[in-house]
Design a protein around this nucleic acid. Structure first.
Lengths: 363, 363
DNA sequence: CCGTTAAATGTTTGCGTTAACATTCACGAT
DNA sequence: ATCGTGAATGTTAACGCAAACATTTAACGG
């Protein structure tokens, strides 16, 4: 019995093997500790830890055993200090409540992880210059090699100065393509598809419920809507502005229901389209028999469950996230900084049941 | 393509003054650099940087000026190495696509930021032991002082060993309250409120569409539903299991629509409730005249826009996030580890228009 | 004037890691 | 034997910061 020396055996199962007895002990195990136990130098431990080839098998095994026994894990702060990089990407954003943002973030996190990068979140409390400034200040003190900014560009104009040197940047959803590296979904083409779909069904023109005026995405969609109508030689009806919320779409819908000429509406997002559906329903305007509605976003598990299921423009947020990560990694690895330019991720129209030809008397 | 439509053409714009001319030079400015320029020792720079009192005004100003001129920012890796802590909290989660998770994360990020902590995201690619294990392994190499785990507990059983020592943990939505520190919404009480509301309207009993069997939250809600029925001396009808998706709710709804005795349904989340509404609509069962429906979650901007607006149990995700951060900070500051125990965040029933007394012939 | 004290600043050191260089050792060629 | 040669391992130094300790300076009572 090898264990006789230790007095009693330890038949008890090791409950939480994780907490070192004292609770507040020396906590971290360093290479030196492992080296001591394995009877080698800490450099050898480092080599094993990094899979360096010139360590003979027997030594490697000893070191690995010592690591396991002590529960060694490398100290990433020391590593970062040594290498001068953190292998971390910061993400600055306003809110996660929009599907688009959270899905983009999810994709960013997944791809960054695959590349061995961690994601640090830098939330911005409110949409004010002050808070944005604060976030960028915090960013300056943070351990990140690059930043992905998910934010309307106009809020950045006054703070771009404070972007710390040596930090690479990619923006999402921005019109700053002339100054920064930008990834965006092809808003304009999505809006064009929506309008052309409705026109091809026989509608005279298409009404538009836009997002808030401060939003670049909203502006883009509105501009493309107008352009597509002009290209087809149709008149553009007056625009209603919402704030992305279901409620604002509802209010716009109550107004539009009173417009007898309105047979087709393009809403700048699905939430507002939902509000439209509700308003039209209450006003006795049937969708799609009397009015056709197209949304934007294709919120999964929702847009397809509207009554009726919503024809909408699908955005590929996962692809946006992927390209963001690709963008910052290119910058980091290439040593370049923010090469200005815009990458557009295609959108596509998903035709469901909220669109149909206009009523016969208005065709 | 970049639409240069914004063609303002203002070449007068100041370049960021921060980048040292060479563009790609030694990049990082250290305390030593600042010290040299200011003509002081690097320790004095350190003192200024940390607001230490014993630096005379004139010296402080000199140092601050030098910092500004060089664009100095402290190296958090060195700081972390020195202090032995990272001021960072890791968050492990499966997906951000559920409203609950993303809202919880948002609250966590906001409160952590307020406390001077950063958030590092550790996404888990898929719901398999392998992937979970992988995430925890990565976690071991990550620069975090504590971890918040947003995940069904049963997936953790086999991996709990690998929780690195010295890392504090708080779990969300878990039944591991006996082993870990857990924060959860009061699922059971929410379900109880839903059932009692329906019974008080006069329904004989309440049917239930549960979440997937693996989910602890689903199990809790189902158990509380059953208990509330029993407490009222009612029979519990057979449970349908969905998978949280709208579609699974729809399928369950098609079945329930064939049950003439079914006048009240409690769905384990809003998505499935939406599917129910749709199925009942298609089958000619009016909500709430023929059947009452209650959901769970109160997805903002959505549940209140269902047709009819959904009576549902509101979850305070922001509060959950807040308490998670509070929990890990208590552990970090108190030097304690994961004090087992569960904190429950209250839920409350929001009565809208999807519930009503049962049809007269079935009261 | 000195000595004492405290305030302001400087010097040394080590946090954990790894690149760069130094050493040891076995072995085959001379 | 002796000397390379190269593979395996060890030693040193530095990354940027701040605690601990050391030094200088100013102020003041005797």
């Amino acid at each position: 019995m090898i264990s006789s020396a230790s007095g009693d055996g330890e038949p008890r199962q090791e409950d939480p093997p994780v907490v070192p007895a004292g609770g507040r002990r020396k906590q971290r195990v360093s290479m030196a500790d492992v080296a001591r136990l394995a009877g080698v130098s800490s450099q050898t431990v480092s080599r094993v830890s990094n899979g360096h080839p010139s360590v003979v098998g027997s030594t490697r095994d000893q070191v690995l055993a010592a690591m396991r026994e002590l529960g060694y894990r490398p100290n990433s702060a020391a590593r970062a200090l040594r290498y001068g990089e953190f292998r971390t990407i910061g993400v600055i954003l306003f809110d996660l409540s929009s599907t688009g943002n959270s899905r983009t973030l999810e994709a960013i996190a997944a791809h960054a992880a695959a590349e061995g990068y961690a994601i640090t979140l830098i939330p911005v409390a409110a949409r004010t210059q002050d808070h944005v400034m604060g976030a960028f200040t915090r960013l300056g003190e943070l351990a990140v090699d690059a930043v992905i900014v998910i934010m309307e560009a106009h809020l950045l104009d006054t703070v771009s100065f404070t972007l710390p040197p040596g930090v690479h940047v990619v923006m999402v959803d921005s019109d700053a393509g002339d100054r920064y590296s930008v990834v965006d979904t092809d808003q304009a083409d999505g809006a064009r598809q929506a309008v052309e779909h409705l026109l091809s069904l026989g509608h005279r023109t298409v009404w538009h419920v836009a997002g808030p005026a401060e939003s670049f995405a909203a502006e883009r969609r509105a501009a493309a809507w107008r352009k597509a109508l002009e290209a087809a030689g149709r008149e553009a009806p007056p625009v209603r502005h919402g704030d992305w919320s279901t409620d604002s779409g509802y209010r716009a819908g109550l107004e539009l229901a009173e417009e007898p000429a309105c047979t087709a509406v393009f809403a700048a997002n699905d939430q507002m389209a939902l509000g439209l559906l509700r308003a039209f329903g209450e006003k006795g305007r049937r969708v799609p028999a009397d009015v056709s509605v197209v949304g934007f976003d294709d919120v999964p598990g929702t847009a397809d469950w509207f009554v009726p299921p919503l024809t909408t423009v699908h955005q590929d947020f996962a692809e946006v996230g992927r390209r963001c990560v690709q963008g910052v990694l290119d910058q980091i690895r290439g040593g370049r900084h923010s090469a200005p330019g815009t990458t557009l991720v295609p959108t596509r129209l998903i035709v469901r049941q909220s669109t149909a030809p206009p009523p016969a008397d208005r065709a």
